[in-house]
Design a protein around this nucleic acid. Sequence first.
DNA 1: CCTACCGATCGGTAGG
DNA 2: CCTACCGATCGGTAGG
Lengths: 196, 196
Amino acid sequence: MTRSAILDHAVKLASQVGLSGLTIGHLAEDLKLSKSGVFAHFQSKEALQIQVLETAAQRFVEEVVKPALGEPRGEPRLRAIFQRWLGWAKSQQTPGGCLFVAASVELDDRPGPVRDRLVELQSEWLALIANVVRAGIAEKEFRLDADPEQLAHDLYAVMLGYHHASRLLQDPRAQARANAAFDNLIGACRQTRRTA
Amino acid sequence: MTRSAILDHAVKLASQVGLSGLTIGHLAEDLKLSKSGVFAHFQSKEALQIQVLETAAQRFVEEVVKPALGEPRGEPRLRAIFQRWLGWAKSQQTPGGCLFVAASVELDDRPGPVRDRLVELQSEWLALIANVVRAGIAEKEFRLDADPEQLAHDLYAVMLGYHHASRLLQDPRAQARANAAFDNLIGACRQTRRTA
DNA sequence: CCTACCGATCGGTAGG
DNA sequence: CCTACCGATCGGTAGG
């Protein structure tokens, strides 16, 4: 049993039960290994939790970031980011929803290296979105006075709202609501081509 | 030791460690009771979890809903709801942030009576916000074509974004960002008084 | 409200 | 990778 196969399953499990609900015993049983066999791959539960975050982050880059960055700068690229982000949140790879959403709420008041790494990853992601917005401003697709950090923050909020509506409330209109919120935000900072 | 004193502390504890992280033993130690002394007040951990939700919901009504409903219909009332909601999320009464946010992520894939009750409470809250929007439309403060459910959903998303920015990222601009997002949403559905 | 206890499970270790 | 084990803690029960 390879370490990466263990981490693969651990990411799935953690999306359902959280990073602290994730136990070495449960992992071992699912993979038909002994507890100590699983434990030997990591030196502590904390190290396992961090490796789970790293594994999910790598997968997020492959499934969301890289393909979206292949789209043309400006609105198409921002739209691709958003759509793939929603897709990630309902991916069968993380059956419990977005692992980062679960971990954010779980760790927001638990200081330590796991939380620190999560904050780094989330900050990098927000900065990347802001850069995509900045590129759109430079391309004159977005207004010069658009606020890239505010828009990145707002898009994060829309994604959290989608997560709440689709997963907890099981609202069939969740995706339509998220799309409407996205269009509203984009519309407000789209460059209006003046006819004068 | 009264049952309500136990629940009072349980709400605080649950906001920090979640409804499943909440343990009878931890509760007993903090309150200097025996485990079975605490347990005797409830018949199961599940019943305790539901009572924690009920206690928090009652407090939410007292601190957020009732005062806001004292404001004039339309924008002032919606603004009061939003401001008090943010205040609730950083209240010292729930040191781990909004209990409902924590419970939503924790329970979104754990079927059962606790989750069912949470969904009811959250749905009622969204419906109440939508009704406040509807009253604002009737007062002609908001546009006739404003969508009350969409706006309620969007305000929920802004609150989740605030929670994430302030608690996980510890962004000092979190409140300013939430206010900007609120103003943006309200501005889009404010009745434009035509001069014609 | 208490003491005393149950079987299960936790993270982790010893030794191989 | 394994068996066998550690002390701690879990939800819950018996009996008072």
